[in-house]
């Protein structure tokens, strides 16, 4: 608790906090009473066997899980100090603060440039005065693509459809397009599972370079990845959060027996 001695009013210690979070898909309860704190500026991994609720938890943080229509939630989720279910909080503002990367790279069927600018254009819709000039847009595109180490590869073909990129490049683009709206939190749902080892390494390196500036929460199936690419880890089982601690600690001396069994590969 050394942090609390320093006055940091603008930077809360936890970027994401859930309390008593329950979630049902129809009659099926997927999350049970989850109390989860994600520290700001760190890379936190969510691990656990298939169907343990880790993706559900991730997807409830930007409320994208509600697309399904038959989802019911109780409890609270605070992101950067705001209750995202609050009546005075706008869902679109929430999503502006929280970028999401999906399991399969899903660039929009637009050009590379338009993919990067999509979020920006979406959020200033109806506000024509703030329309940035072509030069500003070009600068934003370059900055974002440089951040994800893609600029040199695509700078001469920004007008090409994003679908033509390799999967690894597509996934990097999917991260790049989150950046122009300046989110504070990045949610990643198995971001490397569709990539080959080289692509995985490249994207992991990118994630590592983004920590500090962004709070990153990654769902992963891959134990080795959780171990090398996260700072903290949370283990889930049957919809419950079992254990959450420093990655190094979790992989060396897990407190909970089921965590230990999972990490050692006895099930899952």
């Amino acid at each position: 608790m050394a942090d609390e001695s320093k006055p940091q009013p603008q930077a809360p210690k936890h970027a994401i906090q859930t309390r008593g979070l329950n979630l049902w898909y129809g009659d099926f309860q997927a999350l049970f009473d989850v109390d989860f704190d994600v520290r700001a500026g760190r890379v936190t991994g969510l691990i656990g066997p298939s169907g343990c609720g880790k993706s559900t938890l991730l997807r409830s943080i930007n409320r994208i899980v509600e697309r399904l229509g038959y989802v019911r939630t109780t409890g609270t989720i605070d992101v950067l100090g705001h209750d995202i279910f609050g009546a005075n909080v706008e869902l679109l503002q929430v999503r502006k603060q929280i970028g999401m990367v999906f399991q399969r790279p899903n660039p929009l069927p637009l050009s590379i440039r338009d993919n990067v600018l999509f979020g920006l254009r979406t959020h200033r819709d109806g506000d024509r005065k703030s329309r940035p000039s072509k030069e500003v847009e070009a600068q934003i595109v370059e900055e974002s693509l440089r951040t994800v180490l893609l600029w040199d590869k695509v700078k001469d073909r920004l007008g090409e459809p994003a679908i033509r990129l390799s999967l690894e490049e597509q996934q990097k683009l999917c991260i790049a397009r989150l950046l122009p709206v300046k989110p504070r939190v990045l949610l990643m749902d198995e971001p490397c599972s569709a990539l080959d080892p080289d692509g995985t390494a490249a994207v992991e390196e990118l994630i590592w370079s983004l920590k500090g500036d962004y709070t990153i929460l990654i769902v992963t199936h891959n134990m080795a990845q959780a171990r090398r690419a996260t700072e903290e880890c949370a283990f889930m089982l049957h919809g419950k959060l079992v254990e959450h601690t420093e990655t190094a600690k979790m992989f060396v001396s897990p407190k909970n027996q089921s965590t230990a069994d999972y990490i050692e590969g006895r099930y899952g």
Binding site: N62, I64, R67, L92, Q93, R95, K96, G99, M100, F102, R104, N106, P107, L108, P109, F118, G119, R121, T122, H123, D125, C174, R177, L178, V181
Partner: peptide, 19 residues
Amino acid sequence: RYREAAEALGATRWQVTLK
């Protein structure tokens, strides 16, 4: 996944449809 991607970027249903 296109709709999901656009919605996660903060687009409204109408923006998703139109754009």
